[in-house]
Computed example of a mutant assay.
Amino acid sequence: MQVSPLPTLPSRLATRGVEVLPGTLLCAAIAAVSTVIGSFLPMLGSAIPAVVIGVLVALVRTPGPRLRPGIGYSGKFVLQCAVVLLGAQLSLASIVEVGAESLPVMLSSLTVCLLGAWLLGRALKIDRDLTVLVGVGTGICGASAIAAVSPVIKAKSADIAYAISTVFLFNILAVLIFPVVGHALGMTPHAFGLFAGTAVNDTSSVVAAASVFSASALGFAVVVKLVRTLMIIPISIGLAVMEGRRSGEGERFTPRRVLRLVPWFLVGFLVVATLTSLGAVPAAAADLLTQVSVFLVATALAGIGMSTDLRAIRTAGLRPLLLGGILSVLVASTTLGVMALTGAF
């Protein structure tokens, strides 16, 4: 008879808590320092110092096995919790409005990115799987899209690691460059939220770039980014069909498999936004949740900074990096072009 794991859940959670605590506390300490830095330099905010300190720590001394679980936990789960809390800033009506407004810009940039990846990957003679991973990572939502698509195309672990490292490199550059571009073009917080949410490919970097630009751009940018994240579903289904035809082993997509592609933090974000819409979250509580989410973002970015594998980027060659760079520029320029055509700024 199979024993239910439910009775052992408290002990397993306790074990997991002890495992991740040291690394998480280190990330939180870096976030605290970054928050102080951001209070003196508001243009930087707490996000950029956190990721820079994290990278510097990793360069000076690679985190050991005692710290690594918590660092990984911070870079993923803590960030997802931060996104959930950002739902307290928005109502469901505003989310629907944002989705409708961002759709033309988002679909245009995604189409250009995927077409560019196909053409440039062939021209640069880059492996098909690596081209797909860099393309979806740049066009949709960074590591989340890469993680969702990898099992669909049966990608090798080396390709997955390189694609994530490549996308992460341009995420960091986007955090540094996009706010400068936004201010230079005289964007409003609303316009910059659309720009960052569409053209920056990873949730952490979207949050960081929007935080640096202005606090009022953050909520809008996150909603645009989460709408864009939903593109994982049709892209994964399309790639599964193509892979099935190519290998002769087509796999049926059931509703349950489709639902598994929806990130849990997107559901959590919508739940919090629903509670806010119903008046269940008082204004004071919403402000507190927003402040907590900003600190959690800094904690997560510290973890992401310390997780950067610079050696993997150096040893894998320049062509995939070139592909990622060109695609990032294509996505950003397409986003700005469509925004200009539609009068979004």
Rank of each mutant, 00 (worst) to 15 (best):
V20K: 00
L21E: 04
L21T: 06
P22R: 00
P22I: 02
P22G: 04
G23S: 01
G23K: 02
G23L: 04
T24Y: 06
T24G: 03
L25Q: 03
L26H: 03
C27G: 02
C27W: 04
A29C: 09
A29P: 07
I30A: 03
A32T: 10
A32D: 12
A32R: 04
T35S: 15
V36P: 11
I37P: 04
I37L: 12
G38N: 01
G38M: 01
G38Q: 09
G38A: 06
G38F: 01
S39Y: 10
S39V: 03
F40S: 10
L41C: 12
L41Y: 15
P42Q: 06
P42R: 08
P42E: 04
M43E: 15
L44W: 03
L44G: 09
L44I: 11
L44R: 10
L44K: 09
L44C: 08
G45T: 09
G45C: 08
G45L: 07
G45A: 10
S46Y: 02
A47N: 08
I48M: 09
P49Y: 01
V51N: 05
V51A: 05
I53A: 14
I53C: 11
I53S: 12
I53G: 06
G54M: 09
L56D: 15
V57M: 14
A58E: 14
L59F: 14
L59K: 11
L59S: 11
L59A: 13
V60N: 10
R61L: 06
T62D: 14
T62W: 15
P63T: 04
P63Y: 07
P63A: 07
G64R: 00
P65Q: 11
P65A: 12
R66A: 15
R66G: 11
R66Q: 15
R66E: 14
L67F: 04
R68D: 09
P69S: 03
P69V: 00
G70E: 07
G70T: 00
I71M: 06
I71K: 00
I71V: 10
G72L: 11
G72A: 08
G72N: 06
Y73F: 15
S74V: 02
G75P: 08
G75T: 08
G75K: 05
G75Y: 04
K76G: 14
K76V: 14
F77M: 05
F77D: 09
F77T: 13
F77H: 13
V78H: 03
V78K: 02
V78E: 01
L79P: 09
L79K: 03
Q80I: 00
C81I: 11
C81S: 12
A82T: 02
A82Y: 05
A82H: 07
A82W: 07
A82V: 03
V83T: 05
V83N: 00
V83Y: 02
V84E: 05
L85H: 02
L85I: 07
L85Q: 10
L86T: 08
Q89T: 14
Q89E: 15
Q89F: 00
L90E: 13
L90S: 14
L92R: 03
L92A: 00
A93Q: 11
A93T: 12
A93F: 07
S94C: 08
S94M: 13
I95Y: 05
I95S: 03
V96F: 12
E97I: 13
V98R: 10
V98W: 12
G99L: 10
G99P: 07
G99H: 09
E101T: 15
E101F: 08
